[in-house]
Structure formats: structure tokens, C-alpha cells
């Protein structure tokens, strides 16, 4: 099976508005403050094993990881900065 191509730099994405925290034990690397927010792919960083599985010593598939840029002012008007953050493909949807 061939893997899907990585999203290129400049792709607009939205972070899934989801709260696995409410559904029982979990380990998540997507900060709460980005859920539902729109950003732009800065660059793909490669593929890494899914930490949400590794945290429970379960078989972990490799996922594409992206550096994604956000405008922090859209989250907190006083922030006066933008943000680069690593996010896994499973947390991103087309914006």
C-alpha cells in the first residue's frame, strides 16, 4: 500500500474540534487552545509513530507530522505573536 502524499507547505488546515479528554484515559499532543483553529502548513516534518498509541504501549502506526503556523491573536487578542507547532495528520482537516 502506498502512503498518501504529504500536504505541501501553504496548505490551509483546521485542527479537529475534538475532546478525547472527555472520553476516558488518553494522551494527546495537540494543545487544547488549537482545537478548531485554522492554520497553514509551514512544512512537513516526516513520519513518526503515533504517541496516542505509544503512551499505552499499543501498536503505533506512523503518522505524518507537520509544522503548522497559526495567528495567536485569533485565539487571544493580546498575544501579539504567531505560532509554529507540530501536529499529526490525524488532527488536521481541510480548511
Amino acid at each position: 500500500m502506498t502512503r498518501p502524499a504529504l500536504l505541501p507547505a501553504g496548505t490551509r488546515v483546521r485542527v479537529r474540534l475534538d475532546w478525547p479528554e472527555t472520553r476516558g484515559p488518553c494522551h494527546i499532543r495537540t494543545p487544547y487552545y488549537l482545537r478548531g483553529q485554522e492554520g497553514v502548513v509551514e512544512r512537513p516534518l516526516g513520519r513518526f509513530r503515533n504517541p496516542e498509541q505509544l503512551a499505552f504501549a499499543r501498536p503505533a502506526e506512523e503518522l505524518a507530522l507537520y509544522h503548522v503556523r497559526f495567528d495567536l491573536r485569533r485565539i487571544w487578542p493580546e498575544a501579539d505573536a504567531d505560532l509554529l507547532v507540530e501536529l499529526f495528520e490525524t488532527w488536521l482537516e481541510a480548511a
Binding site: R29, P31, G46, L65, D80, A81, L83, V85, E86, L87
Partner: peptide
């Protein structure tokens, strides 16, 4: 300012 939140690998 560009903040870098180091969340993953």
C-alpha cells in the same frame, strides 16, 4: 514574535 510550541517528535 513567533512562538514555537514543541509538542511532538
Amino acid at each position: 514574535i513567533r512562538v514555537v510550541d514543541s509538542t511532538a517528535d
